[in-house]
């Protein structure tokens, strides 16, 4: 039994003169949430569409669930496109059953599963309502339910949380965690970095069609770690031995960012603070940048070049 849900090998796609995706190369494993990141127009949607066989790559190869995306394999994949779409003039349950059947389910099973999902999403009372009568948030949840109705092994979601309030965001997040727990693979394309930090195991960042960062989210953040520490408390930080520069912590967070001299370590700075009678610390941590910072840096560099 293979543990890989998606294997892409050096895929590329050009639209006329425009190279939408150039040489992207990654794997997605079962039982993980994989984030696909990148600025607008980076090639995320094109990559997803190539995985889903909506468009063919010019170069490279793609395997989904252990082979080509055949009709049978399509039944094991759930997709939530960026542009959400539902039949407006049909009842919620009718539409869910139809879309479930199109994924190879028997009508009865689809109905049962749909009702179960609606219950979970607190939409059971709306099953017989027309989609157009639902609020935008409810439609989003229905759309999510449609994506997973057929118990796929792989789901590909474009911006899973757009249009959802914090409560519903938690509901969907928990469903995704649950899905991962049961061995499913999630590919989520998003701009919301805090969600990636919170949820994703591994990630791929592309910019202008180029693969920029790829690997475990924690590793990538460490890789971008500065030779610096973040401290909160009282004291003249600049007077500490080994501190070359002090600046306010970025992104509006409290505390100060202390840049260290090459021969200094975080341990030596901590020891110096501990020995100083005038300094007090409430917080002391390595300056690991947020994904937001990394995103801005990588995308910014790309723009500058």
């Amino acid at each position: 039994m293979t543990t890989t849900a998606i294997t892409t090998r050096h895929i590329a796609k050009a639209y006329g003169d425009f190279q939408a995706v150039a040489d992207v190369h990654f794997d997605v494993y079962k039982g993980e949430i994989f984030a696909l990141l990148g600025p607008n127009g980076a090639g995320k949607s094109t990559t997803i569409r190539m995985i889903l066989d909506i468009i063919k790559p010019d170069k490279g190869s793609i395997e989904v669930l252990g082979g080509k995306l055949t009709e049978a394999a399509k039944n094991r994949v759930g997709y939530l496109p960026e542009e959400r779409g539902l039949y407006k003039s049909v009842s919620v349950i009718e539409m869910m059953v139809y879309l479930g059947k199109l994924k190879g389910m028997a009508g009865k099973d689809a109905h049962k599963k749909a009702m179960g999902l609606l219950q979970k999403l607190e939409l059971a009372d709306f099953a017989k309502k027309k989609v157009s009568e639902l609020s935008k948030g409810m439609q989003q949840k229905v759309q999510f339910a449609v994506t997973v109705i057929h118990d796929p092994e792989l789901i590909i979601i474009d911006e899973p949380f757009s249009g959802l309030d914090p409560v519903n965001r938690m509901v969907i997040r928990d469903l995704l965690f649950d899905f991962r727990q049961r061995g499913g693979a999630v590919v989520m394309s998003t701009h919301q970095m805090n969600q990636v930090e919170e949820m994703a195991d591994r990630m791929l960042m592309i910019s202008r069609g180029q693969q920029k960062l790829y690997g475990a989210v924690d590793d990538i953040r460490k890789q971008f770690a500065l030779h610096a520490i973040v401290v909160e408390g009282k004291g003249d930080w600049a007077a500490l031995p080994g501190v070359t520069q002090v600046e306010p912590h970025s992104n509006g967070r409290s505390g100060a960012l202390l840049h260290l001299a090459e021969n200094a370590t975080s341990d030596s700075v901590l020891a110096a603070i501990a020995q100083s009678p005038t300094m007090q610390i409430e917080k002391f941590e390595l300056a690991i940048p947020s994904l937001d910072d990394i995103f801005i840096r990588v995308a910014g560099e790309d723009k500058a070049s």
């Binding site: 889903l52 039944n75 959400r84 779409g85």
Partner: peptide, 17 residues
């Protein structure tokens, strides 16, 4: 026109040809 307009088409063509 409806399926194309409300973008359900993209969902449909990942289910059938």
């Amino acid at each position: 026109v409806e399926e194309k307009g409300n973008r359900i088409m993209e969902l449909l063509i990942t289910s059938l040809t």
